[in-house]
Design a protein around this nucleic acid. Structure first.
Length: 473
RNA sequence: GUCCCGUUCGUCUAGCCCGGUCUAGGACACAGCCCUUUCAAGGCUGCAGCACGGGUUCGAAUCCCGUACGGGACGCCA
Protein backbone atom coordinates (compact mmCIF):
# COMPACT_ATOMS: atom_id res chain seq x y z
CA UNK A 1 0.00 0.00 0.00
CA UNK A 2 2.96 2.29 0.30
CA UNK A 3 3.31 2.06 -3.46
CA UNK A 4 -0.05 3.70 -3.91
CA UNK A 5 -0.14 7.47 -4.17
CA UNK A 6 -0.84 8.89 -0.75
CA UNK A 7 -4.40 10.00 -0.20
CA UNK A 8 -5.54 11.32 3.15
CA UNK A 9 -8.73 12.94 4.24
CA UNK A 10 -9.88 15.21 6.98
CA UNK A 11 -13.44 14.33 7.87
CA UNK A 12 -15.05 16.68 10.35
CA UNK A 13 -18.70 16.45 11.21
CA UNK A 14 -20.49 19.76 10.85
CA UNK A 15 -22.13 19.60 14.24
CA UNK A 16 -19.93 22.37 15.59
CA UNK A 17 -17.24 24.82 14.62
CA UNK A 18 -13.66 23.77 13.90
CA UNK A 19 -11.94 23.62 17.24
CA UNK A 20 -8.22 23.47 17.87
CA UNK A 21 -8.22 19.69 18.14
CA UNK A 22 -9.84 19.28 14.76
CA UNK A 23 -7.60 21.94 13.31
CA UNK A 24 -4.53 20.08 14.44
CA UNK A 25 -5.81 16.84 12.96
CA UNK A 26 -6.43 18.69 9.71
CA UNK A 27 -2.94 20.16 9.88
CA UNK A 28 -1.34 16.75 10.36
CA UNK A 29 -3.38 15.30 7.51
CA UNK A 30 -2.38 18.20 5.32
CA UNK A 31 1.30 17.98 6.27
CA UNK A 32 1.38 14.27 5.60
CA UNK A 33 -0.24 14.68 2.20
CA UNK A 34 2.13 17.46 1.21
CA UNK A 35 5.13 15.61 2.51
CA UNK A 36 4.37 12.64 0.29
CA UNK A 37 3.13 14.62 -2.68
CA UNK A 38 -0.22 13.12 -1.97
CA UNK A 39 -3.78 14.32 -2.10
CA UNK A 40 -5.52 16.04 0.76
CA UNK A 41 -9.24 15.46 0.73
CA UNK A 42 -11.90 17.26 2.71
CA UNK A 43 -14.99 15.28 3.48
CA UNK A 44 -17.85 16.58 5.56
CA UNK A 45 -19.43 13.84 7.66
CA UNK A 46 -22.93 15.15 7.63
CA UNK A 47 -24.73 11.85 8.07
CA UNK A 48 -26.28 12.99 11.31
CA UNK A 49 -28.79 15.13 9.58
CA UNK A 50 -30.45 16.45 12.71
CA UNK A 51 -27.31 17.81 14.21
CA UNK A 52 -25.54 18.93 11.05
CA UNK A 53 -25.94 22.35 9.57
CA UNK A 54 -24.78 24.09 6.46
CA UNK A 55 -23.69 27.02 8.54
CA UNK A 56 -21.27 24.85 10.46
CA UNK A 57 -19.91 23.43 7.23
CA UNK A 58 -19.32 26.97 6.01
CA UNK A 59 -17.54 27.79 9.26
CA UNK A 60 -15.27 24.78 8.99
CA UNK A 61 -14.35 25.65 5.43
CA UNK A 62 -13.60 29.23 6.45
CA UNK A 63 -11.43 28.11 9.33
CA UNK A 64 -9.47 25.74 7.09
CA UNK A 65 -8.96 28.49 4.58
CA UNK A 66 -7.84 30.93 7.24
CA UNK A 67 -5.34 28.37 8.50
CA UNK A 68 -4.04 27.92 4.99
CA UNK A 69 -4.93 24.24 4.80
CA UNK A 70 -5.94 23.98 1.19
CA UNK A 71 -7.62 20.80 0.14
CA UNK A 72 -7.11 19.16 -3.21
CA UNK A 73 -10.45 17.41 -3.42
CA UNK A 74 -13.83 18.09 -1.95
CA UNK A 75 -15.51 19.15 0.13
CA UNK A 76 -17.39 15.93 -0.41
CA UNK A 77 -20.59 15.47 1.50
CA UNK A 78 -20.84 12.09 3.10
CA UNK A 79 -24.62 12.16 2.79
CA UNK A 80 -24.18 12.09 -0.99
CA UNK A 81 -22.96 8.53 -0.68
CA UNK A 82 -25.99 7.13 1.11
CA UNK A 83 -26.96 4.87 -1.77
CA UNK A 84 -23.51 3.42 -2.02
CA UNK A 85 -23.40 2.89 1.71
CA UNK A 86 -26.70 1.07 1.54
CA UNK A 87 -25.46 -1.08 -1.33
CA UNK A 88 -22.51 -2.10 0.78
CA UNK A 89 -24.85 -3.17 3.55
CA UNK A 90 -26.85 -5.25 1.09
CA UNK A 91 -23.68 -6.92 -0.05
CA UNK A 92 -22.75 -7.72 3.52
CA UNK A 93 -26.20 -9.16 4.05
CA UNK A 94 -25.83 -11.36 1.01
CA UNK A 95 -22.36 -12.51 1.93
CA UNK A 96 -23.55 -13.45 5.40
CA UNK A 97 -21.48 -10.83 7.20
CA UNK A 98 -24.57 -9.07 8.41
CA UNK A 99 -28.06 -9.86 9.58
CA UNK A 100 -31.38 -8.19 10.25
CA UNK A 101 -32.27 -7.19 13.75
CA UNK A 102 -35.81 -6.55 14.86
CA UNK A 103 -35.10 -5.73 18.46
CA UNK A 104 -36.79 -2.49 19.45
CA UNK A 105 -34.19 0.13 20.38
CA UNK A 106 -36.11 0.89 23.57
CA UNK A 107 -35.71 -2.69 24.70
CA UNK A 108 -31.96 -2.59 24.10
CA UNK A 109 -31.78 0.71 25.87
CA UNK A 110 -33.47 -0.84 28.84
CA UNK A 111 -31.15 -3.82 28.85
CA UNK A 112 -28.19 -1.49 28.84
CA UNK A 113 -29.57 0.43 31.76
CA UNK A 114 -30.14 -2.72 33.72
CA UNK A 115 -26.63 -3.88 33.02
CA UNK A 116 -25.24 -0.55 34.15
CA UNK A 117 -27.25 -0.80 37.34
CA UNK A 118 -25.75 -4.21 37.95
CA UNK A 119 -22.31 -2.74 37.19
CA UNK A 120 -21.79 -5.10 34.32
CA UNK A 121 -21.67 -4.32 30.66
CA UNK A 122 -24.19 -5.14 28.01
CA UNK A 123 -23.31 -6.45 24.63
CA UNK A 124 -25.99 -7.10 22.05
CA UNK A 125 -27.20 -10.61 22.80
CA UNK A 126 -27.62 -11.70 19.17
CA UNK A 127 -31.24 -12.64 19.62
CA UNK A 128 -32.00 -11.88 16.01
CA UNK A 129 -29.00 -13.77 14.75
CA UNK A 130 -30.71 -16.92 15.91
CA UNK A 131 -33.85 -16.21 13.95
CA UNK A 132 -34.64 -18.81 11.30
CA UNK A 133 -34.39 -17.54 7.70
CA UNK A 134 -38.10 -17.90 7.01
CA UNK A 135 -38.84 -16.11 10.24
CA UNK A 136 -36.70 -13.20 9.12
CA UNK A 137 -38.43 -13.24 5.80
CA UNK A 138 -41.83 -13.12 7.41
CA UNK A 139 -40.87 -10.24 9.64
CA UNK A 140 -39.55 -8.29 6.68
CA UNK A 141 -42.67 -8.97 4.69
CA UNK A 142 -44.74 -7.74 7.59
CA UNK A 143 -42.79 -4.52 7.15
CA UNK A 144 -41.43 -4.78 10.61
CA UNK A 145 -38.82 -2.16 11.24
CA UNK A 146 -35.46 -3.80 10.95
CA UNK A 147 -31.92 -2.64 11.50
CA UNK A 148 -28.95 -4.45 10.04
CA UNK A 149 -26.15 -5.58 12.27
CA UNK A 150 -22.65 -6.73 11.49
CA UNK A 151 -21.84 -10.25 12.57
CA UNK A 152 -18.58 -9.88 14.41
CA UNK A 153 -16.43 -12.96 13.81
CA UNK A 154 -14.75 -14.80 16.66
CA UNK A 155 -11.13 -14.19 17.44
CA UNK A 156 -9.39 -10.90 17.78
CA UNK A 157 -8.52 -7.94 15.63
CA UNK A 158 -5.17 -6.32 15.69
CA UNK A 159 -3.55 -3.60 13.69
CA UNK A 160 -0.31 -1.71 13.63
CA UNK A 161 -1.03 1.90 14.43
CA UNK A 162 1.57 4.25 13.00
CA UNK A 163 1.60 6.24 16.21
CA UNK A 164 0.61 3.91 18.99
CA UNK A 165 2.06 0.66 17.70
CA UNK A 166 0.28 -2.65 17.82
CA UNK A 167 -3.25 -2.62 19.13
CA UNK A 168 -5.17 -5.82 19.71
CA UNK A 169 -8.78 -6.14 20.68
CA UNK A 170 -10.62 -9.34 21.34
CA UNK A 171 -13.84 -9.82 19.41
CA UNK A 172 -15.46 -10.65 22.70
CA UNK A 173 -15.53 -6.99 23.49
CA UNK A 174 -16.97 -5.89 20.16
CA UNK A 175 -20.70 -6.14 19.85
CA UNK A 176 -22.59 -6.72 16.64
CA UNK A 177 -22.81 -3.08 15.73
CA UNK A 178 -25.55 -1.58 13.62
CA UNK A 179 -24.79 -0.94 9.97
CA UNK A 180 -28.16 0.26 8.82
CA UNK A 181 -30.72 1.94 11.02
CA UNK A 182 -34.31 0.79 10.87
CA UNK A 183 -35.11 4.04 9.07
CA UNK A 184 -32.82 2.93 6.28
CA UNK A 185 -29.95 5.24 7.10
CA UNK A 186 -26.43 3.83 7.16
CA UNK A 187 -24.42 4.44 10.31
CA UNK A 188 -21.09 6.12 10.68
CA UNK A 189 -18.97 2.98 10.48
CA UNK A 190 -20.36 1.93 7.12
CA UNK A 191 -20.20 5.43 5.73
CA UNK A 192 -16.58 6.06 6.67
CA UNK A 193 -15.34 2.73 5.51
CA UNK A 194 -17.21 2.76 2.23
CA UNK A 195 -16.17 6.32 1.54
CA UNK A 196 -12.57 5.65 2.47
CA UNK A 197 -12.51 2.65 0.16
CA UNK A 198 -14.21 4.62 -2.58
CA UNK A 199 -11.80 7.54 -2.20
CA UNK A 200 -8.86 5.16 -2.09
CA UNK A 201 -7.66 6.60 1.22
CA UNK A 202 -4.25 5.18 2.03
CA UNK A 203 -3.70 6.69 5.47
CA UNK A 204 -6.32 7.40 8.06
CA UNK A 205 -4.90 10.04 10.35
CA UNK A 206 -7.41 11.04 13.02
CA UNK A 207 -7.94 11.65 16.70
CA UNK A 208 -7.19 8.96 19.24
CA UNK A 209 -10.84 8.93 20.22
CA UNK A 210 -11.34 6.76 17.15
CA UNK A 211 -8.92 4.11 18.23
CA UNK A 212 -11.60 1.82 19.59
CA UNK A 213 -13.68 2.23 16.43
CA UNK A 214 -10.82 0.98 14.34
CA UNK A 215 -11.28 -2.77 14.90
CA UNK A 216 -14.89 -2.53 13.79
CA UNK A 217 -13.86 -0.69 10.70
CA UNK A 218 -11.11 -3.15 9.93
CA UNK A 219 -13.67 -5.92 10.14
CA UNK A 220 -15.73 -4.04 7.59
CA UNK A 221 -12.79 -3.60 5.23
CA UNK A 222 -12.20 -7.32 5.41
CA UNK A 223 -15.82 -8.23 4.88
CA UNK A 224 -15.94 -5.94 1.89
CA UNK A 225 -12.72 -7.37 0.56
CA UNK A 226 -10.97 -4.02 0.49
CA UNK A 227 -7.34 -3.19 1.31
CA UNK A 228 -6.88 -1.78 4.80
CA UNK A 229 -5.29 1.65 5.06
CA UNK A 230 -2.58 2.66 7.50
CA UNK A 231 -4.07 4.02 10.69
CA UNK A 232 -2.46 6.78 12.70
CA UNK A 233 -4.24 7.95 15.81
CA UNK A 234 -3.01 11.20 17.17
CA UNK A 235 -3.36 11.94 20.87
CA UNK A 236 -6.02 14.31 22.04
CA UNK A 237 -5.65 17.90 23.08
CA UNK A 238 -6.72 18.46 26.65
CA UNK A 239 -7.76 21.51 28.61
CA UNK A 240 -5.80 22.73 31.64
CA UNK A 241 -7.87 20.35 33.78
CA UNK A 242 -6.62 17.48 31.61
CA UNK A 243 -9.98 16.56 30.26
CA UNK A 244 -10.73 16.63 26.58
CA UNK A 245 -10.75 20.16 25.24
CA UNK A 246 -14.28 21.49 24.93
CA UNK A 247 -16.31 24.66 25.05
CA UNK A 248 -15.98 24.65 28.80
CA UNK A 249 -12.34 25.54 28.38
CA UNK A 250 -13.07 28.89 26.79
CA UNK A 251 -11.95 29.76 23.31
CA UNK A 252 -11.57 26.52 21.42
CA UNK A 253 -12.89 27.63 18.06
CA UNK A 254 -10.12 28.35 15.64
CA UNK A 255 -11.96 31.38 14.37
CA UNK A 256 -12.13 32.83 17.86
CA UNK A 257 -8.37 33.10 17.68
CA UNK A 258 -8.54 34.92 14.40
CA UNK A 259 -10.83 37.42 16.05
CA UNK A 260 -8.39 37.78 18.89
CA UNK A 261 -5.69 38.87 16.49
CA UNK A 262 -3.75 35.64 16.21
CA UNK A 263 -1.90 35.05 12.95
CA UNK A 264 -2.60 31.80 11.11
CA UNK A 265 1.16 31.34 10.81
CA UNK A 266 1.49 31.36 14.57
CA UNK A 267 -1.46 29.04 15.04
CA UNK A 268 -0.09 26.56 12.54
CA UNK A 269 3.36 26.56 14.07
CA UNK A 270 1.96 26.21 17.57
CA UNK A 271 -0.43 23.43 16.61
CA UNK A 272 2.27 21.54 14.74
CA UNK A 273 4.32 21.33 17.90
CA UNK A 274 1.40 20.15 20.00
CA UNK A 275 1.80 16.41 19.93
CA UNK A 276 4.49 16.33 17.32
CA UNK A 277 8.18 17.03 17.50
CA UNK A 278 10.85 17.18 14.82
CA UNK A 279 13.28 15.57 17.24
CA UNK A 280 15.40 18.72 17.22
CA UNK A 281 15.25 21.99 19.09
CA UNK A 282 13.87 23.90 16.15
CA UNK A 283 10.81 25.92 17.11
CA UNK A 284 10.06 28.07 14.09
CA UNK A 285 8.98 26.53 10.87
CA UNK A 286 8.09 27.97 7.54
CA UNK A 287 5.57 25.79 5.76
CA UNK A 288 8.10 24.10 3.53
CA UNK A 289 10.35 23.33 6.47
CA UNK A 290 7.46 21.88 8.37
CA UNK A 291 6.45 19.71 5.45
CA UNK A 292 9.98 18.46 5.10
CA UNK A 293 10.37 17.72 8.81
CA UNK A 294 6.98 16.17 9.41
CA UNK A 295 6.60 12.46 9.95
CA UNK A 296 4.18 10.15 11.70
CA UNK A 297 7.03 8.81 13.82
CA UNK A 298 7.43 12.20 15.47
CA UNK A 299 3.90 12.15 16.83
CA UNK A 300 3.79 11.56 20.55
CA UNK A 301 1.62 8.91 22.14
CA UNK A 302 0.54 10.98 25.11
CA UNK A 303 -2.21 13.56 25.23
CA UNK A 304 -1.19 17.20 25.29
CA UNK A 305 -2.53 20.12 27.28
CA UNK A 306 -3.38 23.19 25.27
CA UNK A 307 -1.20 26.06 26.44
CA UNK A 308 -2.58 29.44 25.33
CA UNK A 309 0.42 31.29 26.68
CA UNK A 310 2.72 29.56 24.28
CA UNK A 311 0.39 30.35 21.43
CA UNK A 312 0.52 33.99 22.50
CA UNK A 313 4.30 33.86 22.48
CA UNK A 314 4.39 32.35 19.00
CA UNK A 315 2.05 35.08 17.86
CA UNK A 316 4.27 37.83 19.22
CA UNK A 317 7.25 36.20 17.55
CA UNK A 318 5.51 35.98 14.21
CA UNK A 319 4.35 39.57 14.44
CA UNK A 320 7.93 40.57 15.08
CA UNK A 321 9.46 38.64 12.23
CA UNK A 322 6.90 38.33 9.45
CA UNK A 323 8.03 40.23 6.34
CA UNK A 324 6.26 43.55 5.98
CA UNK A 325 4.43 42.53 2.82
CA UNK A 326 2.92 39.56 4.63
CA UNK A 327 2.05 41.50 7.76
CA UNK A 328 0.28 44.46 6.15
CA UNK A 329 -2.66 42.45 4.78
CA UNK A 330 -3.42 41.38 8.33
CA UNK A 331 -2.95 44.90 9.69
CA UNK A 332 -5.05 46.81 7.20
CA UNK A 333 -8.40 45.39 8.38
CA UNK A 334 -7.47 46.20 11.95
CA UNK A 335 -6.71 49.83 11.11
CA UNK A 336 -9.93 50.02 9.16
CA UNK A 337 -11.86 48.65 12.11
CA UNK A 338 -10.21 51.22 14.35
CA UNK A 339 -11.20 53.96 11.91
CA UNK A 340 -7.59 54.98 11.36
CA UNK A 341 -7.02 53.70 7.86
CA UNK A 342 -6.43 55.93 4.88
CA UNK A 343 -5.47 54.76 1.42
CA UNK A 344 -2.31 56.86 1.33
CA UNK A 345 -0.81 54.34 3.75
CA UNK A 346 -0.26 51.94 0.89
CA UNK A 347 0.70 54.69 -1.54
CA UNK A 348 2.62 57.86 -0.79
CA UNK A 349 2.77 57.15 2.94
CA UNK A 350 3.75 53.50 2.56
CA UNK A 351 7.29 54.14 3.70
CA UNK A 352 6.06 56.01 6.74
CA UNK A 353 3.63 53.24 7.56
CA UNK A 354 6.34 50.67 7.26
CA UNK A 355 8.47 52.52 9.80
CA UNK A 356 5.51 52.78 12.10
CA UNK A 357 4.79 49.06 11.85
CA UNK A 358 8.41 48.27 12.58
CA UNK A 359 8.21 50.43 15.69
CA UNK A 360 5.41 48.30 17.07
CA UNK A 361 6.53 44.86 15.98
CA UNK A 362 8.38 44.04 19.18
CA UNK A 363 5.58 45.52 21.27
CA UNK A 364 2.47 44.00 19.75
CA UNK A 365 1.08 40.74 21.05
CA UNK A 366 -1.98 40.64 18.84
CA UNK A 367 -2.88 42.42 15.63
CA UNK A 368 -5.22 44.81 17.38
CA UNK A 369 -2.30 46.18 19.34
CA UNK A 370 -1.05 48.04 16.28
CA UNK A 371 -3.94 50.48 15.90
CA UNK A 372 -4.45 50.56 19.63
CA UNK A 373 -0.90 51.54 20.48
CA UNK A 374 -0.19 53.75 17.50
CA UNK A 375 -3.47 55.66 17.67
CA UNK A 376 -1.85 58.97 18.65
CA UNK A 377 0.01 59.07 15.36
CA UNK A 378 -3.25 59.26 13.46
CA UNK A 379 -5.27 61.73 15.51
CA UNK A 380 -5.00 65.49 15.47
CA UNK A 381 -5.89 65.77 19.10
CA UNK A 382 -3.93 63.95 21.76
CA UNK A 383 -5.95 61.72 24.05
CA UNK A 384 -4.30 62.18 27.40
CA UNK A 385 -4.06 59.47 29.97
CA UNK A 386 -4.97 61.22 33.19
CA UNK A 387 -2.61 59.29 35.40
CA UNK A 388 0.29 60.04 33.08
CA UNK A 389 -0.58 63.72 32.99
CA UNK A 390 -0.82 63.84 36.77
CA UNK A 391 2.53 62.23 37.09
CA UNK A 392 4.53 64.13 34.49
CA UNK A 393 2.78 67.30 33.36
CA UNK A 394 1.36 68.84 36.51
CA UNK A 395 4.40 70.99 37.19
CA UNK A 396 4.29 74.37 35.42
CA UNK A 397 8.07 74.47 35.50
CA UNK A 398 8.21 71.26 33.51
CA UNK A 399 5.77 72.63 30.98
CA UNK A 400 8.13 75.54 30.59
CA UNK A 401 10.96 73.14 29.86
CA UNK A 402 8.89 71.51 27.16
CA UNK A 403 8.16 74.85 25.54
CA UNK A 404 11.86 75.58 25.49
CA UNK A 405 12.47 72.17 24.02
CA UNK A 406 9.90 72.94 21.35
CA UNK A 407 11.76 76.10 20.40
CA UNK A 408 15.03 74.21 20.17
CA UNK A 409 13.55 71.48 18.03
CA UNK A 410 11.95 74.01 15.75
CA UNK A 411 15.31 75.57 15.14
CA UNK A 412 17.17 72.30 14.55
CA UNK A 413 18.87 72.20 11.15
CA UNK A 414 17.93 68.56 10.77
CA UNK A 415 15.28 66.47 12.48
CA UNK A 416 17.11 63.22 13.04
CA UNK A 417 17.47 60.73 15.83
CA UNK A 418 20.95 61.99 16.45
CA UNK A 419 20.19 65.70 16.49
CA UNK A 420 17.09 65.18 18.60
CA UNK A 421 18.98 63.25 21.20
CA UNK A 422 21.73 65.86 21.26
CA UNK A 423 19.21 68.66 21.64
CA UNK A 424 17.40 66.97 24.49
CA UNK A 425 20.56 66.09 26.33
CA UNK A 426 22.13 69.50 26.04
CA UNK A 427 18.97 71.20 27.17
CA UNK A 428 18.76 68.87 30.17
CA UNK A 429 22.34 69.69 30.88
CA UNK A 430 21.70 73.43 30.77
CA UNK A 431 18.69 73.07 33.01
CA UNK A 432 20.59 70.91 35.42
CA UNK A 433 18.14 68.03 35.21
CA UNK A 434 18.45 64.45 34.09
CA UNK A 435 17.52 63.78 30.48
CA UNK A 436 14.74 61.52 31.76
CA UNK A 437 13.17 64.49 33.55
CA UNK A 438 12.67 66.03 30.14
CA UNK A 439 11.88 62.92 28.17
CA UNK A 440 9.19 61.46 30.34
CA UNK A 441 7.06 64.61 30.28
CA UNK A 442 7.77 65.04 26.58
CA UNK A 443 6.51 61.55 25.93
CA UNK A 444 3.24 62.24 27.69
CA UNK A 445 2.82 65.55 25.91
CA UNK A 446 3.38 63.98 22.52
CA UNK A 447 1.67 60.62 22.87
CA UNK A 448 -0.70 61.22 25.77
CA UNK A 449 0.72 58.09 27.37
CA UNK A 450 3.50 57.26 29.77
CA UNK A 451 4.22 54.21 27.66
CA UNK A 452 5.35 54.47 24.07
CA UNK A 453 8.13 53.41 21.73
CA UNK A 454 11.45 55.25 21.86
CA UNK A 455 10.83 58.99 22.14
CA UNK A 456 13.05 60.07 19.25
CA UNK A 457 11.64 57.46 16.93
CA UNK A 458 8.18 58.69 17.79
CA UNK A 459 9.15 62.32 17.18
CA UNK A 460 10.62 61.58 13.79
CA UNK A 461 7.67 59.57 12.66
CA UNK A 462 5.24 62.14 13.96
CA UNK A 463 7.10 64.92 12.18
CA UNK A 464 8.56 68.17 13.36
CA UNK A 465 5.40 70.26 13.14
CA UNK A 466 3.22 68.01 15.23
CA UNK A 467 5.99 67.29 17.69
CA UNK A 468 6.64 70.96 18.32
CA UNK A 469 2.96 71.74 18.53
CA UNK A 470 2.30 69.02 21.08
CA UNK A 471 5.23 70.07 23.22
CA UNK A 472 3.72 73.54 23.60
CA UNK A 473 1.04 72.81 26.11
C1' G B 1 -18.52 -2.42 35.00
C1' U B 2 -15.64 -3.97 30.44
C1' C B 3 -12.03 -2.92 26.79
C1' C B 4 -8.11 0.12 24.63
C1' C B 5 -4.24 3.70 25.23
C1' G B 6 -0.92 6.63 27.89
C1' U B 7 2.59 8.48 32.15
C1' U B 8 10.19 12.94 31.52
C1' C B 9 10.23 20.22 34.79
C1' G B 10 3.46 23.81 36.20
C1' U B 11 2.82 23.33 30.43
C1' C B 12 4.78 21.72 25.27
C1' U B 13 8.69 18.42 24.50
C1' A B 14 14.17 15.92 23.29
C1' G B 15 16.24 11.49 24.99
C1' C B 16 13.45 5.55 25.07
C1' C B 17 13.14 1.50 19.47
C1' C B 18 19.58 0.57 19.17
C1' G B 19 20.66 0.29 28.00
C1' G B 20 26.47 3.55 29.85
C1' U B 21 28.13 9.83 26.32
C1' C B 22 21.92 12.18 31.06
C1' U B 23 25.33 15.64 37.34
C1' A B 24 18.23 14.39 31.84
C1' G B 25 18.67 18.95 26.74
C1' G B 26 15.35 22.87 24.54
C1' A B 27 10.89 26.07 24.69
C1' C B 28 6.61 28.69 27.25
C1' A B 29 5.52 30.63 32.00
C1' C B 30 7.85 32.48 36.50
C1' A B 31 12.12 35.05 39.27
C1' G B 32 16.64 37.92 39.19
C1' C B 33 20.36 40.64 36.55
C1' C B 34 22.13 43.35 32.13
C1' C B 35 20.75 46.91 28.25
C1' U B 36 17.73 51.43 28.74
C1' U B 37 14.27 57.80 27.95
C1' U B 38 9.03 54.86 29.52
C1' C B 39 7.10 50.16 27.66
C1' A B 40 8.34 46.13 25.00
C1' A B 41 11.92 43.33 22.50
C1' G B 42 16.80 41.26 23.26
C1' G B 43 20.98 39.01 26.24
C1' C B 44 22.48 36.28 30.64
C1' U B 45 21.40 33.48 35.10
C1' G B 46 18.12 30.83 38.09
C1' C B 47 13.76 27.70 39.57
C1' A B 48 11.77 23.07 38.31
C1' G B 49 10.98 16.70 35.96
C1' C B 50 12.31 10.49 34.54
C1' A B 51 4.49 8.42 38.66
C1' C B 52 5.53 4.27 42.19
C1' G B 53 7.26 -0.80 43.29
C1' G B 54 9.69 -5.06 41.75
C1' G B 55 12.84 -7.54 38.33
C1' U B 56 16.82 -8.17 34.19
C1' U B 57 21.87 -6.11 34.03
C1' C B 58 28.40 -4.54 36.04
C1' G B 59 25.00 -0.43 34.75
C1' A B 60 17.98 1.51 33.38
C1' A B 61 14.60 7.66 31.98
C1' U B 62 15.78 3.85 28.40
C1' C B 63 14.20 -3.55 28.54
C1' C B 64 10.26 -6.83 31.38
C1' C B 65 6.23 -7.35 35.09
C1' G B 66 2.89 -5.23 38.50
C1' U B 67 0.45 -1.02 40.99
C1' A B 68 -1.35 3.80 40.95
C1' C B 69 -3.06 7.77 38.33
C1' G B 70 -4.89 10.00 33.81
C1' G B 71 -7.43 9.79 29.17
C1' G B 72 -10.47 7.48 25.47
C1' A B 73 -14.23 4.06 23.89
C1' C B 74 -18.30 1.00 25.01
C1' G B 75 -25.31 4.24 20.88
C1' C B 76 -30.39 2.45 15.50
C1' C B 77 -24.12 9.86 17.45
C1' A B 78 -20.04 11.02 14.40
Amino acid sequence: MSKQPVRVRFAPSPTGYLHVGGARTALFDWLFARKHNGTFILRIEDTDIERSSEEMTRGILDAMTWLGLHWDEGPYMQSAGFDQHRDAVSKLLESGHAYHCFCPPELLEQKRKEAAARKTDFKYDRICLRLAPDEVKRCLENEQRAAVRFKVPDGSVSFEDAVVGEVTISSETIEDFVLLRSNGQPTYHVSVVVDDIEMRITHVIRGADHISNTPKQILLYRALGAPIPVFAHIPLILGPDKTRLSKRHGATSVMAYQEQGILPEAMRNFLALLGWSPGTDQEFFEDDELIRAFSLEGISKANAVFNPEKLAWFNAQYIARLPHERLVPYLKPEYIKAGLWRDSLEREDAGWFRSLVDLYRPRAKVLQDFPKLSRFFFLDHVEYDQAAVDKFLKDEKVRGYLRTLADRLEALPEFSHHSLEAAVRSLADELGVKPAALMNPARVAITGQAIAPGLFDVMILLGRDKTVKRLRI
